[in-house]
C-alpha cells in the first residue's frame, strides 16, 4: 500500500483538488492531460527509481490510482536485477 499512498500524494501535488482516490477515468475525463502525464512520469521515476518507457503510457495504466500502482509495482519488480 506504500506505493499507492506515494502515488496519491504525487497526483494531489500535480493536480490539486481532483478526486484521485476513487476516479477510474483520469485520462478519459482529462483530469490528467498529456502535459500532466509528462510531469507525472518524471515524478514517479524519481520517487520509485524506475524508468517508465513510452509504451507504458496507455489509458489502462493512467486512468486510476490503482492502475498506476499496478504499473509502478510491476516496473519496480521488472527493473530489479
Amino acid at each position: 500500500m506504500e506505493e499507492r499512498e506515494t502515488i496519491l500524494e504525487i497526483l494531489d501535488e500535480l493536480a490539486p483538488g481532483a478526486d484521485f482516490e476513487g476516479c477510474t477515468t483520469l485520462v478519459d475525463d482529462r483530469v490528467l492531460d498529456s502535459l500532466t502525464i509528462v510531469a507525472l512520469v518524471a515524478e514517479l521515476e524519481d520517487a520509485f527509481d524506475i524508468t517508465i518507457p513510452a509504451v507504458e503510457v496507455v489509458v489502462e495504466n493512467f486512468n486510476s490510482a490503482d492502475g498506476l500502482t499496478a504499473m509502478v509495482k510491476r516496473l519496480v519488480e521488472d527493473q530489479l536485477d
Binding site: 498529456s34 502525464i37 509528462v38 512520469v41 517508465i52 518507457p53 513510452a54 503510457v57
Partner: peptide, 10 residues
Amino acid sequence: RDYIYYPVSL
C-alpha cells in the same frame, strides 16, 4: 501521440 509525442517527451 503514441509514436511521437510520448516517446519524444519521455
